[in-house]
Design a protein around this nucleic acid. Structure first.
Length: 905
DNA sequence: TATCCGACAAGTT
DNA sequence: AACTTGTCGGATA
């Protein structure tokens, strides 16, 4: 580390820096010498420009002063070379500042060149020390949250908390405790003063502790000069806190001996190591009964928050800083701008987004101060003071406790940043007395007028961000459903997720200007929901300014919520549209002309579900839905036993095929009693099963089930063809397969509702639907389960723009379809899963599919398609043309034009 | 009546 | 414990 300090001294030779740097991380001397002599250890192609690339570890790129290190890093991150050499760290410096990216954790370092030694740990993995900071912090957070949780439980045992007032008092009490613990460990209070007072000034049975705490809290709400002169020293040592935290004289709960011991234990935790960024979420989860099992499942991790706020405002502010460098006036203007930016999270939870946004803006501001120092012209004794105030941060939260924690965490974040500021600029504003607070509101975000919370209008620079809650149609409660109705007015909501409300309210809010970005479930940009949500947004002049395509949700909670998410930025006037796509595990940003509501590059065409096929085609229906609680369904052995006892059942038991059975070759059977005589229905084993079905359907209670309870011998919904064969399409299939396997079934094989079926479908349909043209159409428009394909008749099949086909071509296509059946048949021992395994698909089958693909593509046009994007673009254009033609032929039914087929540009 | 969906759910490795 | 991959039946139009 000493070498690092030396190498970054102002007068050090910049050419030598990289060697000192590598030396500091214990790279062998031999390696250093080798690089110095231009040896092969340095795999950079631009050695002559001073680049150094070490396989697996580092790509180092010096730039001339005046060039933006941030832009250079962005460019470098997008290049292939570092990835090719698997370089974990990308480092760019102009020898004034350094910026670096840890490609593994997606963390960024920005540091003045001279202060690099203080950030030694960022590169610690290069010295063989995996940077466990985050893990440790998380575990400190968890430990603290768990301990506080136990204290919370104990308090509930000895107190009555039932009214909202009592609960609020408890929430405030816990928040105050948290503040005191942090304060005594981070220099806001005298070291350990709070825990010490509890230990020394209260009895072991804890009976006098509530009185003591009441007294302490009162004092913390009293300016020093207003306090009584005779105040005991152990009380008087606590400073005036203000800021509203101790304003209200709320009752302190009974604590007793056990509670007291727990409080002292909590005080012994290393609170300085607890990171307010996510601690609040952890703790909130502990306290919230309903979510305790899923503790912290839904808090947004710091990397994911960065994915939201960097494209939203941070990147462009850094770009502005770069542009203004060297110009004191402009830098001053930038500072002024920073002090007026508003950040608003209308679903803030315990405030993660606001905390990170606050910290990042403070870091940026420090970079501006550094740039001002570089300009010189510093006025005599000029003191830099942060102009960023917590009151620029706005939030809404429905949960009272989370709201209290958010307020607290922001104060703590301010304290942290003041400390950081002091380290570099030599002075810090004291945290106490707390001056301005963030402008947070406890309430229902969907019922509040956001303009009342955070004014938006001419001359304002407002950024909305957050991760609002997701609830599908089944997952929301009555009040949430009512809120949705209110937010969207009379519009039919279909399958719209609850989270869509934030997009809608954001759209209204942004009319005067500003930008918003939310984390959302990916389903908003798939299937049904696209046509329900997006026309309204796009028609009110809002565009998608940036987007992260689907990725699995994750944070460091012990069990993660099962959902895949997207991040969507909205703006009235996006200057540049950025699409973030994951290519082999890494995020790549592409600047595009337009981002479609499906979050791919392209126009704003929206495909709406249809009841009938767009072009004349055989109808597709869904397989039979049992709603039987399993009572009409038999395993192989159940079937055998039943048939042993009852020969009369032979004609009434049929093979049942779901997606699982089709794909994996499993075998199930069902009682298919359509048209069965009374005598069969009265067989005792049958009767008892039918009684169970009836009971279940009555219990379900909805109209369809009650109807079905009158005929329990039938599946609730019957769609089975009576004769012939049908094409089977599994409803949910893995997205990893190169093709979605379809199959032919005879009409006496009963399909359940996990498949879609085309009665009387032939080889031509089979072939086209198996082809890449249809597969890519499906990929574009289908709904999904996380990322699995969710096939559906109305969205995928009925909207599919089939090709025009001559009789001769049709026969050719059928021949190729038959070849696929034969290619499969050549592997009679393999299931569909095995045949279509992405890694093990047999060559003959793959080749046959590819031949079919080419033939089907040719039905559309002679020139082959380059890739999925080109096929989708082509099909969308054809879809639009067909829709237009349909409208033209049926002018009276133009009601369907709410499809809002808006063309871009 | 006919679906499309799931801050998932149940299985395997 | 991580990874793979589609159940089941309700809510909705």
């Amino acid at each position: 580390m000493d070498t690092l300090t030396a190498a970054t001294r102002p007068k050090a030779d910049s050419g030598e820096f990289i060697y000192a740097f590598l030396d500091a991380y214990d790279f062998p001397k031999a390696t250093l010498t080798q690089i110095r002599n231009g040896g092969q250890r340095n795999v950079a192609s631009r050695k002559d420009e001073g680049h150094v690339a070490l396989k697996k570890w580092l790509y180092y790129m010096p730039v001339r002063q005046g060039e933006s290190i941030h832009e250079a890093l962005q460019v470098l991150a997008d290049e292939d070379e570092p990835a090719r050499h698997k370089c974990r760290f990308l480092v760019v410096t102009d020898f004034r500042e350094m910026t670096a990216l840890d490609t593994k954790t997606d963390e960024r370092l920005e540091v003045g060149f001279g202060e690099l030694a203080t950030q030694y740990l960022f590169f610690a993995p290069m010295a063989g020390l995996e940077r466990t900071k985050h893990f440790e912090e998380a575990s400190a957070d968890l430990k603290a949250a768990a301990k506080m949780g136990r204290l919370f439980d104990r308090l509930k045992e000895v107190n009555e908390f039932s009214t909202p007032e009592q609960l609020h008092a408890l929430n405030v009490f816990l928040t105050r405790l948290l503040f005191c613990y942090f304060a005594e460990d981070t220099g806001i209070f005298p070291k350990n003063a709070f825990t010490k007072v509890i230990t020394e000034a209260s009895g072991e049975n804890g009976e006098d502790l509530p009185d003591l705490l009441t007294q302490l809290f009162r004092v913390m709400n009293q300016p020093e000069d207003e306090r009584p002169a005779d105040l005991a020293a152990h009380v008087a040592q606590f400073p005036y806190v203000n800021g509203g935290l101790f304003r209200d004289d709320l009752p302190v709960p009974e604590i007793r001996g056990t509670g007291r011991r727990m409080m002292i234990e909590c005080g012994r935790l290393a609170w300085e190591a607890v990171n307010p960024d996510i601690f609040g979420s952890m703790f909130q989860a502990v306290v919230d009964e309903e979510s305790r099992d899923s503790m912290g499942q839904h808090y947004t991790s710091v990397p994911n928050i960065m994915k939201v706020i960097r494209p939203l405002f941070l990147d462009k502010l850094y770009a502005e800083l770069h542009k203004d460098r060297g110009n004191r006036k402009k830098l001053e203007a930038l500072l002024e701008r920073l002090s007026h930016i508003k950040v608003f999270d209308p679903a803030m939870g315990s405030g993660n987004f606001l905390i990170i946004a606050y910290k990042e803006l403070r870091r940026l501001e420090m970079s501006v101060f550094r740039a001002m120092q570089d300009v010189g012209e510093q006025k005599q004794n000029e003191l830099f003071m942060s102009g960023i105030r917590l009151s620029q941060f706005y939030g809404i939260e429905i949960d009272d406790f989370a709201y209290e924690v958010a307020q607290l965490s922001l104060w703590l974040a301010e304290h942290q940043m003041n400390m950081l500021f002091a380290k570099e600029f030599g002075h810090a504003e004291p945290l106490l007395p707390l001056k301005d607070a963030a402008q947070l509101v406890a309430g229902n975000s969907l019922q509040l007028n956001w303009l009342d919370v955070c004014w938006n209008g001419e001359g304002q620079e407002v950024y909305i961000c957050g991760n609002p809650p997701f609830h599908g149609t089944a997952g929301r409660n009555v009040e949430q459903a009512r809120d949705m109705k209110r937010v969207f007015g009379k519009k039919a909501l279909g399958y719209l997720d609850y989270v869509a409300c934030w997009f809608q309210k954001g759209t209204d809010y942004l009319q005067p200007g500003g930008e918003a970005a939310f984390v959302s479930t990916n389903s908003l940009c798939q299937g049904q929901q696209v046509a329900t949500l997006w026309p309204g947004i796009l028609n009110s002049g809002i565009e998608i300014s940036f987007a992260y395509q689907t990725f699995p949700w994750s944070n460091s909670a012990q069990s993660n919520a099962g959902v895949h998410v997207v991040i969507i930025g909205l703006s009235t006037h996006p200057t540049q549209k950025r699409l973030y796509q994951r290519v082999s595990g890494e995020w790549r940003m592409k600047i595009v002309k337009n981002i479609s509501p499906y979050l791919v590059e392209g126009g704003n065409t929206i495909v709406s579900s249809r009841n009938r096929s767009l072009v004349p085609a055989l109808p597709m229906v869904r397989g039979n839905q049992p709603t039987d609680g399993g009572n009409l369904i038999l395993s192989e052995s159940e079937k055998d036993q039943l048939l042993d006892r009852e020969q009369r059942l032979v004609p009434w038991i049929k093979p049942l095929i779901g997606a699982q059975e089709f794909l994996k070759g499993d075998c199930r059977w069902c009682l298919w009693l359509v048209g069965a005589p009374e005598e069969v229905l009265n067989i005792p084993e049958v009767r008892s099963r039918l009684d169970a079905v009836r009971a279940l359907r009555i219990k379900a209670g909805h109209a369809a089930a009650l109807q079905g309870a009158k005929r329990p011998h039938q599946f609730l919904q019957v769609a089975q063809p009576e004769e012939g064969s049908y094409i089977l399409v599994p409803a949910f299939t893995s997205e990893r397969r190169p093709y979605v396997p379809l199959g032919f079934m005879e009409s006496d094989v009963i399909s359940n509702n996990k498949n879609y079926i085309i009665p009387d479908g032939g080889l031509y349909e089979f072939s086209v639907l198996s082809s890449i043209m249809h597969l890519d159409w499906m990929r574009l428009v289908c709904g999904r389960l996380e990322s699995r394909y969710g096939y559906s008749s109305r969205i995928v099949y009925n909207t599919f723009p089939w090709p025009e086909v001559s009789e001769r071509d049709r026969q050719e296509i059928e021949k190729l379809g038959r070849a696929i059946i034969l290619a499969r048949a050549a592997h009679p021992d393999k299931t569909m899963t095995q045949l279509y395994d992405p890694d093990k698909m047999p060559d003959n089958l793959l080749e046959t599919h590819q031949a079919l693909d080419r033939a089907v593509e040719k039905l559309y046009r002679d020139r082959p398609f380059r890739d999925t994007a080109e096929r989708q673009e082509y099909l969308l254009a054809r879809y639009e043309a067909l829709i237009e033609a349909e409208k033209a032929s049926k002018p009276s039914r133009t009601k369907k034009s709410r499809n809002a087929v808006t063309k871009e540009g």
